[in-house]
Design a binder for these strands. Structure first.
Lengths: 407, 407
DNA sequence: CCCCTTATTTCAGCGCGTGACGAAAGTGCG
DNA sequence: CGCACTTTCGTCACGCGCTGAAATAAGGGG
């Protein structure tokens, strides 16, 4: 509604941003290529690139013949211009990983979390320790750190200072940004872990090249990230895309969120295993709402279910039903968001999708409207669940690119 | 991903756009107010406003005392600078309406559609006739027409030339833009009718002031429009927000779209009446999928249902169930889009919402996650269903504002 | 009528992209 | 080996557009 005014400086920043993003995403390019790709005049490209070369933001990267004439010198973003830290706050461990600008991993530190409901202070301590550890081990000085991205399980309320609501950790409005800021001067960025994974997939995985992608993640929980032109959709406070808690079976199974018939209560890993248990024994464990029966080894359970499909009729039936719910849930995403591509991931999503993908596509086709379905492809994630920290580290990179590298 | 370069001219266009939008939406303002509101320097505001005054885009509108000093002269967008036409292609009639820039209706023409599956040519002929009729009757010359916005029932595929897919009209990829362009030189804009209604509600109705709104429309069909900062969310080809065909009861009632368990098959007007019929007779008409039983007077039926709630137990039950489905569907919107406000409308939505709104809020609260629910208010549309043409006419206005009025 | 306050306009200054022109860096042919 | 040709890249004068400072306009009060 209210765009902000533009000054002559914003223009330069923006043009630097355009050039820098182009160089970053589309590999080494010559100045010539850049004039064509961005529409800027050769003079401006030369000017802007010269400035960025001087600042060490970009560097020359060889040359390529140009039949007959002066060879083009290639340019790329200089990986060593700055470093990023990506943090993955998982339910069982905190991972802190250091990257250079080319997203090459340089160091990594893991801190296991014992409690199912860890104190925020503990997590903060782990993150700060990891920050020290990875920068020290790679010999990266503090002021070369462009920023720290943190992916958390739960809702990140972006605002003056980011706060986290994570039901699974028992966190309510934890002022994570303020807490971390007390211990470091690095620029901090926060987002939901599923969304950072989506970012990673978008930049380096199955989402490459698409403008409009929905990443659907299925693990113990179920979430989604909607990404348009590289930026993720956020509502009023960024708690958007709570796909797992949309109603898909009105009046159906009780979900751990307290509502009935959530998608998560049917296709979340716990829920799938619980449904399998019911299918084998004939009836559910009484008095226990679905989803609370957390096995010590859900991953093994899902693997067993997938493996058992050939021999066991109950396993096959549960899988078939899961494909049904998942396909309908994906059809909902297609109808609501009309994406170019749906990327299914998460550890359970990958395990189930590996065998169920064709069936999921069929069900989604039956539930979605013909037209949007025809424009969407359904694929599996290419990066593993470890990419959460990669995606978190792209948060400062995105900032750098959209700022054009202004300090 | 790839923003476009900026030149020094883009800057001026954008600053004009910022000023113009401010003036348009926030009523008469003085130059002084504008400097504060936009961040531009007083010199630039004066310069830009002077230019726009000269072009007749804005005009002075009185003055207001400023304790002790020179009074501020107020400025506003000049309503007669240009004129808009909004077209509402409904299922029973084509309405063509002429507005000035302040959205004051100047002339109107309706053309009934007899066939349930009208030929595109017929509709095009009506639109062109209406265009002539309204401009002639108001004495607006052709070159004063800023543009024509058309709202259609169905999916608008934006592209080189807009095409329309409207299942209810039996239209498949109708090249409406090309067809109209053959008969007029006006600038043409197309969007789904529900979305244009959402735009109207956003600019002049219940969405005013909110940055992030979802408009949920319930009539015979069910649709939604997601609006962020005044622009509506579109997917790859803008067929986004097909809320009515998201699955809410897995394996449930057959919908006219062919899938099972769509929201529309429960809360669409036809579906509600069908459910009521079933509730009264005890069983459905066999062999007839739900939703195809189009009564001649659905509106009367819904009114009767609402009125009958006090006496008839079956009516009360059907209403209660409807509130449940609608609440769950709205909760899905809240969870997925995390809006600031949900606006329920459409003729059936208003009729049902009038009595069911408190109950719908309760159900939505139970189904949505606490956090996003807490940030969303649920309200009723303020403008009637006739606002489709108003919303359609805002399409060219939006273009004017974002262009800063450059020719 | 003069002074004070506030709003608006004027003006010099500066940043920025552009087009034109020229330098740089190769290739191919005599 | 040198010259012509091709293609890429850098430099410069120019015009546009925003800004801050100073000047001017428009009232009110004494």
């Amino acid at each position: 509604m209210d765009a902000k005014r533009a000054t002559v400086r914003d223009m330069r920043r923006r043009n630097r941003a355009v050039l820098l993003s182009r160089l970053y995403h589309d590999g080494p390019l010559s100045r010539q290529d850049l004039t064509g790709a961005t529409g800027l005049s050769a003079a401006s490209v030369s000017n802007l690139v010269g400035e960025m070369l001087e600042q060490g933001l970009v560097e020359e990267a060889g040359a390529v013949d140009s039949d007959g004439g002066r060879p083009r010198t290639l340019l790329r973003v200089r990986p060593g211009y700055g470093y990023l830290v990506g943090v993955d706050v998982g339910e069982t461990r905190v991972r802190v990983e250091l990257f250079d600008l080319s997203m090459t991993g340089l160091a990594k530190a893991d801190y296991p979390i014992e409690s199912a409901r860890p104190e925020p202070e503990t997590v903060v301590r782990h993150i700060l320790a990891g920050l020290d550890a990875v920068t020290a081990s790679a010999g990266v000085p503090r002021d070369a750190l462009l920023g720290v991205g943190v992916g958390v399980p739960g809702v990140v309320e972006q605002g003056e200072s980011a706060a986290v609501h994570a039901q699974t950790l028992g966190w309510e409005a934890v002022p994570l940004e303020a807490m971390l800021r007390a211990g470091t001067e690095a620029r901090l960025y926060f987002d939901n872990g599923a969304k950072t994974l989506g970012r990673a997939e978008m930049w380096f995985g199955a989402g490459r090249g698409a403008r409009h992608v929905v990443i659907a993640l299925v693990g113990s929980g179920v979430g989604a990230a909607v990404l348009t032109d590289g930026v993720s959709y956020r509502g009023v406070s960024s708690s958007a895309s709570e796909w797992g808690h949309t109603t898909i079976v009105y009046g159906g199974r009780r979900c751990r969120c307290g509502a009935d018939g959530c998608l998560e209560a049917y296709v979340g890993a716990e829920a799938v295993l619980d449904r399998w248990r019911v299918a084998r024994r004939g009836r559910p464990v009484p008095g226990r709402p679905a989803g609370t029966v957390t096995g010590p080894d859900e991953e093994g359970g899902i693997a067993a279910l997938v493996a058992g499909a050939e021999r066991s009729e109950s396993a096959a039936r549960v899988l078939e039903e899961t494909a049904g719910y998942l396909g309908a849930g994906i059809a909902n995403l297609i109808n609501l968001f009309n994406p170019e591509r749906i990327v299914l991931g998460g550890w359970a999503g990958l395990a189930l999708g590996g065998v169920l993908l064709p069936r999921i596509r069929e069900v989604a086709a039956a539930h979605a409207l013909r037209h949007p379905y025809g424009q969407a492809s359904i694929e599996l994630c290419r990066l593993g669940p470890d990419a959460v920290s990669v995606g978190a580290a792209t948060l400062p990179v995105a900032r750098l690119l959209s700022d054009g590298g202004s300090r």
